[in-house]
Design a protein around this nucleic acid. Structure first.
Lengths: 201, 201
DNA sequence: GATCAAAACGGACTGCGGTCCGCTTCTATT
DNA sequence: AATAGAAGCGGACCGCAGTCCGTTTTGATC
């Protein structure tokens, strides 16, 4: 299964040195523990270094930034989601009509955000180009392709951008957490939106 | 003209003390200068305090946070925009059919973001409840009302949320700045989107 | 003008993300 | 086993947003 990583692949593919690999595992384990205890927002890079028994510099060498760390923690969940919408069974995967796939994509994404959203929000933070992260580019292309297949000829690229905006973790979590919108209501609204976009074609 | 402020009104309406008012003016003037010189992202609260000749604590007492400061700087532009879509001439203001008002709202908002976007982005930063800022609530209600008038019966509240997401400064600036999308193309896509949402009713 | 409480002030302080650079550890080579 | 240089390490350090609290200013009251 060919999956697009959240994290840029290091050029050259040299394997990690043994100590580096060991520290990466230590850090990921410690990070999961800390998030369990304090929540994603409660994790600080200093505490993480301390808990893992390494220097702070090592944390940043491994993950580049706090957002990068969160992406690493998400990468399994992300890869699984990618696998499902690209190769899994219909209606999310290939085989169903495009409108149904669009609907399924949003529904599943909403469910995904509700499960991993706190991490996703922490990973989003910052970065002027948070929309150009490999995974985000992939969803965008997927939506664009489905829109084309569905016969939407009016600027599918920007339409996909608009639909992506609707599925942004921050907004979904805000609607559910602050305004107490039921997830099924979100899903119904997504269905409605995407149906109108496609049918209006 | 009754306008909704970006900043919570202080309860009780006691007037500011004279020194407080003086410092507020000093700070706003200094902030505009600094942004002129270094851009909104280049403004730091420490530098601002120094330039205005006041203590750092004073800056935070006045504006609460960096985002609060940016909102204060935006508030004139925001008020002007509010005035136009609530009381101004059609098609943005009342008098035109709802679909045309929706289209105009997006077009004008896109233009607005391209003019004041850097500030708006700086004002957005952080805050779990950045969607509950008075101005954002007002746009949301406006969109919701127009959708209802246009006969959209399917969850206008969430539809308005989705449309708001599409107009978010961060995304618009990213599309224009990074992907070199022409503003007219953004406007055309918005027209298309909103027409489909309404016509599908 | 003297008095006084409340409001505002200012800058030292905290905690954070992120960088830097001299030191240590690993691994390929002989 | 010795060696060398690359990769990795770690923690002091920086700049920033935001807080705290002792001091100063203000303006209502007498």
């Amino acid at each position: 299964m060919c999956v697009v990583s959240l994290i840029p692949i290091r050029p050259g593919f040299e394997p990690e040195r043994r100590d580096a690999a060991r520290n990466r595992e230590l850090l990921l384990r410690a990070a999961r523990e800390l998030i369990e205890e304090c929540g994603a927002d409660g994790l600080t890079m200093g505490t993480l270094a301390q808990r893992a028994g390494v220097g702070k510099g090592t944390v940043f060498r491994r993950f580049g930034s706090r957002a990068g760390l969160m992406m690493s923690l998400l990468s399994d969940a992300e890869a699984e989601f990618q696998g499902r919408f690209m190769f899994g069974p219909p209606p999310l995967g290939p085989g169903a009509p495009p409108l149904e796939r669009l609907i399924a994509f949003g529904e599943e994404r909403i469910a995904w955000v509700l499960e991993f959203g706190e991490l996703a929000r922490a990973a989003d933070v910052s970065a002027y180009n948070r929309f150009d992260v490999p995974a985000a580019v992939l969803w965008h292309r997927h939506l664009e392709m489905l829109l084309r297949e569905a016969g939407v000829t009016a600027d599918p690229w920007l339409m996909a951008t608009s639909l992506s905006a609707v599925l942004e973790p921050e907004r979904i979590l805000h609607a559910v957490g602050v305004h107490h919108i039921a997830p099924e209501r979100l899903a119904a609204s997504w269905r409605e939106l995407v149906s109108r976009v496609v049918r209006g074609a």
